[in-house]
Design a protein around this nucleic acid. Structure first.
Length: 399
DNA sequence: AGGTATTCACATGAAACTATTCTCTGAGTTAGG
DNA sequence: TAACTCAGAGAATAGTTTCATGTGAATACCTGT
């Protein structure tokens, strides 16, 4: 009965959203604000591809949420359309190297490329050279210019080294018909510094930096999006300003700002409000953070959760604790749960990863005569801690 | 007092190992002609 | 004889272990005053 009336209400109530897709990260707007210069630059560099000449390899740097991916995708799209219209054999390919199990290893990257050409290769079992030669053959069948965009390329080289990049640049000299042009996108500004010199010189012929947006620009971007995403007049005054301020505070991450606005909208709608108010935004910020963390915890292996659990166990007693203490508690937990005990070496790595995820705060300090260690503290709120604890207890079957 | 050498408790790196998943190959087996 | 089955060899990958080396500053130990 109650449920029924709830659904009735839900149907009758007007949504405050006009088109929620506009606020998703997959959305590519028609105009990209404040990026005219960069777009033009990228276009200039890639344009020769339309005459089936090989464009210079391009590297794009910039922090997260500065419109790198968006701009490149935009250009690829229009480039592809023009090429199609004029029957230019141009093949734009976009790959995100960070996606787990898609393009995060040499093998998978190449096999993904082969898939783009419409052939399927097994996900494992073949030697890497094999898929390289399949790729070569496929590529050289007919004259094409391939524009290969590797997003988050820094993650790729961090994980498996820069050999692939070398191989990819070498492909050109082996092919008769086709050309391949690399476009790398990196969050890390000093990415190319720890690259093999051979790779670096042949790779970064052109470089482009996307500066962060400032607060006013983010406001404008948010206004533009919210015009399309929400019905008119539903966003209360000051919400957009505050939303922009939130993300301009660290480095002007537009994606985060848009995310925040969307979640605020969802919260407002769920609470039955016809307006998006500042308090919804505050809730949204909390929710975005906790969701991110909970998601991260869920996706980690068991041992990982075990280490985190030991930290959660110590945390009520102390504010700061060291690797050694955590390891002791962790060993006890392993005994209880009949898990095999990992070495301290590994636990040390796991702690570093937890730090990266922002779940803990780890600082390496030297206590002089008494050694060198990580000084760890939890960097999440009480309510989140409890939630995580429950999740882990469930997944590790701790009573 | 001031300077240097030690020393602790890990951090960090590289390589090698393990278990799992998957392919390919070729020998052995089966069913149909 | 062609089709099928199935074990064994070889790969890729994630998660670890092993071994080796690095490291920052509080202390211990000198030294000369």
């Amino acid at each position: 009965m109650q449920i029924e009336s709830f659904f009735e209400n839900f149907l009758n109530k007007e949504s405050i959203f006009l088109d929620k897709n506009v606020l998703l990260s997959s959305y590519i707007p028609e105009d990209i604000l404040y990026r005219e210069e960069q777009l033009q630059e990228v276009a200039n560099i890639l344009a020769p591809a339309l005459r089936t000449e090989k464009p210079s390899t391009l590297f794009i740097y910039g922090k997260t949420g500065t419109g790198k991916t968006l701009s490149v995708k935009h250009i690829l799209k229009s480039l592809g359309e023009i090429a199609f219209k004029n029957k230019v054999p141009l093949k734009p390919i976009y790959l995100n190297c960070k996606l787990k199990r898609v393009a995060d290893t040499e093998y998978r990257l190449i096999s993904q490329l082969i898939k783009e050409f419409g052939q399927d290769v097994p996900s494992t079992g073949l030697p890497t050279d094999e898929i390289y030669s399949i790729f070569y053959k496929l590529l050289d069948q007919e004259k094409t210019v391939v524009l290969l965009v590797l997003d988050e390329i820094d993650q790729l080289t961090k994980k498996i080294g820069d050999e692939i990049l070398y191989n990819l640049t070498r492909i050109n000299s082996e092919l008769k018909n086709s050309q391949i042009c690399l476009i790398g996108i990196s969050n890390n500004l000093i990415f190319s510094e720890n690259l093999d010199p051979r790779v670096r010189s042949s790779l970064s012929e052109e470089e482009l930096i996307f500066p962060p947006y400032n607060a006013i620009q983010i406001q404008e971007i948010l206004r533009e999006r919210s015009k399309k995403a929400f019905k008119s007049e539903v966003v209360e005054l000051g919400v957009i300003e505050k939303c922009a301020a939130y993300s301009a505070r660290d480095h002007g991450d537009a994606r985060r700002a848009i995310d925040l606005l969307r979640v605020a909208g969802e919260i407002a709608e769920r609470s039955g409000s016809s307006l998006i108010k500042i308090e919804h935004l505050d809730d949204a910020e909390k929710k975005v953070e906790t969701d991110k963390i909970i998601n991260a915890v869920n996706n980690q292996p068991k041992q990982f959760q075990g280490v985190l659990y030991s930290i959660l166990l110590i945390s009520p007693q102390k504010k700061m604790f060291y690797t050694g203490e955590i390891y002791e508690v962790y060993k006890n937990i392993c005994k209880q749960t009949k898990f095999n005990i990992l070495t301290q070496r590994r636990v040390s790595d796991i702690l570093a990863e937890l730090d990266m995820l922002g779940i803990i705060n780890a600082k390496i300090i030297s206590k002089g005569r008494y050694g060198r260690t990580r000084e760890v503290s939890l960097s999440i709120e009480e309510s989140v801690i409890i939630k995580i604890k429950e999740i882990i207890e469930k997944s590790l079957h701790i009573s």
